[in-house]
Amino acid sequence: MLEGGNIPILDAIQLETNFFKESNNFTAFTTKIHSNFHINRVEDYMKIVSFPTQADIVPRRLSVYSFFFLTKGRSIKSKGLNSYDFGENTFFFLPAYQITTHQEICAGSEGYYCHFDMQLLNVDYKTKDLINEFTFLEFNANPTITVDEEAKSNILHLLDRLILEYKTGEKCRMNVLRMYLMTLFTEILPFANNDNPNTSNSAFLITEQYKKYLAEYIYDKQKVSDYAELLAISPNHLNKCVKNTLGKSAHDVLNEMLLLEAKFLLKQSNLNISEIACKIGRNEISSFGRFFKAQTGVSPSEYRMIGFNA
């Protein structure tokens, strides 16, 4: 259970610290570039750590982008409230600030884990252009991508090349990491479901930033006007952008994020319902109850008691 109720946001160094608590040998996988980029083989990690760790099971957000590529075995990971059970030759992509857990991985599984700060790629590319090109990096995209055996051969070469460069430590060349990472994304792209909206327009970009801010500030800012101020636009303009991109209002999206937080806190925290209500801006428990039941069809107490997954 979460202590204190907040779903934590971990940067790369905090993520490393959590792993370090599980094994004093984990420093062998880290370098000074860890905050911008990290990669390791899953099987190497599983030799020294009993997986999944408590840090994996507890819901969290990462401030970096990450992917998990399974070459052998089976795993279950979550993105938001959805769980994904996937097997070999499958990638699981997770954008920064999305809620996640790593619920299960079979003994004997093999693969790669990698995280990277978008600033690593922003030297040559703008974030909007990257998301436009590689739609699996988008906040609400389907996180799983399965590749065929022919592509896998090229992908393994790229991943192994990234590991070799990363292990050089202080001599690691960031431009080489950037080049191979971009090539890897290009190899994966034909297997992704490109069913996301047009990402080249300003409405989409504003909407994406809005969703990112929601993930970062949902406990502190619970009005659409607060986020419009962060984006330096009017609430009306923010609403139009979200409506044009998602087909729903900015207020609807805000409520969806509040509901997501409430569901996780009900399932995973030691807070009582009154405390959860306050955290999501419903100071009156009756107001929280009406809000929650209108969205899910059940009361907060029923949801917590029976583990309802609506």
Rank of each mutant, 00 (worst) to 15 (best):
D11Q: 14
D117H: 12
K47T: 04
T71C: 13
R173H: 11
F92M: 03
R61F: 08
T245R: 00
F139H: 03
E3A: 15
S249R: 12
L189N: 13
K243P: 00
R290P: 07
L156W: 00
A151M: 04
K221F: 07
C278Y: 13
S249Y: 04
L15P: 01
L254V: 02
V298W: 12
H34K: 08
I57V: 14
T183Q: 13
F308K: 12
M118S: 14
Y210D: 00
C241P: 04
N82P: 01
N142M: 08
Q98N: 13
E165H: 10
S83M: 00
F139R: 06
E110D: 03
R60W: 09
I285Y: 07
A151P: 04
L246V: 05
S200W: 03
I33K: 13
M305V: 05
T31H: 08
I155H: 03
K293G: 10
G297H: 15
F69Y: 14
N193G: 11
L70K: 10
S225A: 15
A203S: 13
G297E: 09
S109F: 09
F20T: 05
S50Q: 12
L130C: 15
F92C: 02
N18S: 12
Y166K: 06
K72W: 06
D148I: 07
V298Y: 15
R74F: 10
T53A: 15
Q209R: 14
I155R: 02
F134C: 07
F292G: 04
Q295G: 03
E275K: 11
L259E: 08
H34G: 06
L70I: 08
L164A: 12
G297W: 08
D160Q: 07
L184I: 06
Y303K: 05
C241Y: 00
K221I: 04
V58W: 02
N122K: 14
I276P: 01
L156C: 02
I218D: 09
E261K: 11
L162K: 02
S50Y: 02
A141W: 03
A277C: 10
M174Q: 11
Y219M: 08
Q268A: 14
S83C: 00
V42D: 00
G111I: 01
S109C: 09
N270Y: 00
E229I: 07
S109E: 06
D195G: 08
K79N: 07
V253D: 03
F291H: 03
S109Q: 07
A12H: 10
N198E: 10
I131N: 12
S301I: 15
I188V: 12
S269R: 09
D195A: 04
G108V: 00
L15D: 02
E275W: 01
A96W: 08
T296F: 11
K79V: 00
N193K: 12
P197D: 02
V298I: 15
K240F: 09
